[in-house]
Design a protein around this nucleic acid. Structure first.
Length: 820
RNA sequence: GCCGAUAUGGCGGAAUUGGUAGACGCACUAGACUCAAAAUCUAGCGAGAAAUCAUGUGGGUUCGAGUCCCACUAUCGGUACCA
């Protein structure tokens, strides 16, 4: 048994003292920048999921150093956030103190795992020297019109008493506390991320992100193409604008629907005959939480707005207008034309309220069957027969639609838009699901938004030379009943002078969301102690972009999107040199408890990394997390398995007992050594760590079998294993007589020639079934192989008396005889 | 519903991308060492008496399919009245 406790402490101390892994400020060297998501220092301490990500990229960082790169592998803490604040409210301890305690604990835990972080660049989002620049970026956004105040119906969590971004609402309840979320009108700071929607899609093309991550980004942005069309209101100059992706179905629009919040209703209240009924419906809808609204989506509700009719611009028919909450004010124009025959939701609504259903599209098969002639209305297809809407764009042909008749849906859409534009009825339009980012939080523990409101000048940013605008020390963290920030009670702090005109003015009391600090942290690492700029130009030019970013799948939509947005904004200002922040993004799978369930305190299946380090050592922990399964997939924790990894390292240590001299690979191992170097080198790049570890195990088995390992072999082995198990390998390296550290030894090279076996155990199949193996030389002549095979007794027994149809030889791979 | 993924021994998982299915590890069994146990070491370990059968199910392509194609099923993750 090797003494991992002593060894790991020894090397960690040495690394710390010597700053072994600090990135060099020599900008002439080839660089590599690896990034892991900086942790939120929770009270629970490090989770076993953190080391999975950290070890994976640590391995790459360590390999890159051995390959001669100047490596930046930084670490910091994303320390603003609700848990610390909620803890503060409960226990009356300042979040700053909690955060400091948690951060110290995290730092100690991370250090005990031997990650090659550059601790000299540690950052913390709650440090005024850091959030100074977060505030600075906000001011730039404001100055360029991308930050604005708007009174918006926002998601309001009844538990946290705080406005939430759409992203923080899960199934209608608060992502953090699980309380119901209701709609509330509130003046909020908003960021115009929608302005970047198209670029956030387009620029994905040049990035090396996992496909599923790109897909998630695109889904979230949710681009759709269609048209906006105006429907005239009868007996009025007004019209109602709708958005549709299916302008080819215009002839089938038999009614319209507006969302309960639509201004149309108030505007025309004089014409509405059943105003009370409509108002009552509006009221009911506003009382519903998001949860109820989606919960009730099975059963549609609505009220007809009586007294007002719209005119279908293509058929000139009068159609009714309804109000219903299945139409959302936040998407498109907040109003729709309903085509019940070709939209599932409209169909359901029409069935319930007995509205006409008019079929204007049939499937290609149906179209062929009825031989519907172009330009001819068709009565053979009975609208009443429909039991569900026909929505397939790929397979539709227009009917009963005058000039669209006979066109396939895709062409019909284009023709319809052309017609609409020519006749000034509307225009082509692209829509996105993505909405502007609600950037205000009515909370204490976040970056103060550096804005001042002056009655005369409006919103004025805090002058940049006054940044950071520090978060004031307060005692009461409880948010106000109406959802105001706790800062709203700090009159001393609020009252200030207008930076513009000098008159008395008031500070913004909302703070930034947790996403803010993490939207640009990768930039600060490049130059963390700069007090003149957020990063120096030289550092940016040298380190940009992040070469490889790894983190959890839970952050591949929002965090990634938000930081890409900020980065693009900074790029437009000429402040950063690249269009995108991260060149490559990968994600690790979750680690579940031993019972296959998500680790949680309540389930009692949480594994504490400290216990694992104490019992097996950091190296065993690291090796196990890499061995447990494919890196990008969910894996269950197994104590038995980690013991196996610990045993493996014991055997690595024991190889010292069978060490012999030698400065060349021995004959018996040469082939294996070259293969192993190749395999491990490639595996690391593809994050196939589990098979790298099995390669190491196979090597140890082989050396044990040979009962010897020479110095050269041992050295190469240690070099390959070093990124995975840095402490034990450094220790043995030293014991082999080296005075330099393994961490900067050049990565071993392999010779392709020598990875190829000289003699091959060639499988021989008959009709695709394995029947024998024969020994051949590499690239042996086919005739010679054929002769050997036909001499083989086993084979002869099989082909005796049978007709040989053909013989297939795949050089050096397989030989197959087909018989009848 | 939509998007994405996954399915291989008792278990975690390998398989050079169409070429010997089950590498490596765990668990298990036997042996060595020990008074004994643990640890360690050695050997065995998909099913079947065998022919053979086996990579979620059913088809297909091929000399040859875990891998490719078609149609399903199950599980997991994300998302959802987005017109």
């Amino acid at each position: 048994m090797y003494n991992f406790k002593e060894i790991e402490q020894k090397w960690q101390d040495k690394w710390e003292k010597e700053g072994t892994f600090n990135a060099k400020n020599d900008y002439t060297l080839p660089k590599w920048y690896g990034l892991i998501e900086f942790p939120y220092p929770s009270g629970q301490g490090l989770h076993v999921g953190h080391p999975r990500s950290n070890t994976a990229l640590d391995i790459i960082a360590r390999k890159r150093r051995m390959q001669g790169y100047n490596v930046l592998y930084p670490i910091g803490f994303d320390a603003f956030g609700l848990p610390a604040e909620n803890y503060a409210i409960k226990n009356h301890i300042h979040p700053k103190i909690i955060t400091k305690q948690n951060t110290d604990h995290f730092r100690k835990q991370l250090k005990s795992l031997g990650f090659s972080f550059d601790w000299s660049r540690e950052i913390n989002t709650t440090d005024p020297n850091y959030y100074k620049w977060t505030q600075w970026i906000f001011i730039q956004l404001f100055k360029h019109g991308l930050a604005y105040k708007a009174t918006m119906p926002i998601n309001f969590c009844t538990g946290c008493k705080v406005g939430l971004a759409n992203e923080e609402v899960v199934n209608g309840v608060c992502e953090r506390c699980g309380s119901p979320v209701v709609q509330k009108e509130k003046s909020q700071w908003m960021l115009k991320i929608t302005e970047y929607a198209q670029r956030l899609i387009d620029d994905l093309d040049d990035l090396d992100f996992l496909d599923k991550i790109k897909a998630q980004q695109k889904n979230w942005i949710g681009r759709s193409e269609g048209a906006e069309v105006n429907f005239k209101i009868k007996d009025s100059d007004d019209s109602l604008l709708v958005y549709t992706t299916r302008p080819d179905t215009l002839f089938g629009a038999t009614y319209m629907v507006v969302s309960p919040e639509h201004p149309f209703i108030n505007k025309h209240k004089d014409m509405i005959k059943n105003l009370d009924e409509v108002k009552e419906y509006q009221e009911k809808a506003s009382m519903k939480s998001d949860f109820e609204r989606s919960e009730l989506n099975k059963e549609k509700t609505g009220v007809e707005i009586k007294g007002i009719k719209a005119i279908n611009p293509l058929t000139n028919e009068e159609i009714p207008i309804w109000i219903s909450d299945y139409v959302l004010i936040t998407y498109g124009t907040g109003a729709i034309m309903a085509v019940p025959a070709h939209d599932d939701r409209d169909f359901e609504f029409a069935k319930k309220f007995n509205l006409p259903i008019k079929k204007v599209i049939v499937s290609k098969e149906e179209f062929a069957k009825y031989k519907v002639d172009e330009g001819q209305a068709n009565s053979k297809i009975d609208d009443k027969e429909m039991t569900e809407a026909f929505t397939d764009v790929e397979n539709g042909v227009a009917i009963n639609s005058e000039f669209l008749n006979g066109l396939e849906s895709k062409d019909a859409i284009n023709k319809a838009i052309e017609y609409i534009e020519e006749n000034k009825l509307g225009s082509r339009k692209v829509n996105y699901k993505l909405r502007d980012w609600v950037f205000s939080r009515q909370r204490y523990w976040g970056e103060p938004i550096p804005m001042v409101y002056c009655d005369d000048c409006g919103w004025v940013p805090v002058p940049e030379e006054e940044l950071p605008l520090k978060l004031p020390e307060i005692k009461d963290y409880e948010p106000g009943e109406n959802g105001e920030s706790p800062l709203a009670k700090q009159t001393d702090w609020i009252n200030t002078k207008c930076p513009h005109c000098g008159k008395p003015a008031k500070r913004e009391t909302d703070t930034m969301p947790q996403w803010a600090g993490s939207s640009w942290y990768y930039l600060r690492y490049m130059d963390p102690h700069n007090d003149k700029e957020f990063v120096s130009k030289e550092a940016l030019e040298y380190w940009s972009p992040v070469d490889w970013y790894n983190g959890g799948m839970e952050h591949t939509t929002l965090h990634l999107l938000y930081s890409r947005f900020w980065h693009k904004f900074l790029y437009d200002l000429g402040k950063v040199p690249t269009k995108e922040p991260y060149q490559k993004r990968t994600s690790h799978g979750m680690i579940l408890g031993e019972n296959g369930e998500k680790m949680s305190k309540s389930k009692g299946n949480v594994i504490n990394p400290d216990d694992i380090v104490r019992e097996f050592g950091a190296d065993s922990f690291r090796v196990y997390e890499m061995f447990m399964g494919p890196f990008d997939q969910t894996a269950e924790w197994s104590m038995d398995s980690i013991r196996g990894c610990n045993k493996f390292l014991d055997r690595v240590w024991s190889l010292q007992d069978i060490l012999v001299e030698g400065d060349q690979y021995s004959k018996e191992t040469e082939n294996m050594m070259h293969k192993a170097i190749k395999k491990v080198s490639n595996d690391i790049e593809e994050m196939k760590y589990n098979t790298s570890v099995s390669t190491f195990m196979t090597m140890v088995n082989e050396f044990s079998k040979l009962k010897k390992i020479n110095k050269k072999e041992y050295e190469t082995f240690l070099q390959l294993l070093n990124p995975f198990a840095p402490h034990i390998t450094e220790e043995i390296w030293e014991r082999l007589g080296h005075t330099n550290q393994l961490a900067y030894e050049p990565w071993p090279k392999y010779d392709e020639e020598k990875t190829i076996d000289e003699s091959i155990d060639l499988p021989v199949q008959i009709n695709g079934k394995l029947r024998a193996n024969i020994q051949i030389q590499k690239d042996e002549d086919k005739d010679s192989i054929k002769a050997k095979i036909h001499e083989n007794e086993k084979i002869q027994a099989y082909i005796e008396g049978k007709e040989i149809v053909k013989e297939i030889y795949v050089p050096n791979r397989i030989y197959n005889i087909v018989i009848k």
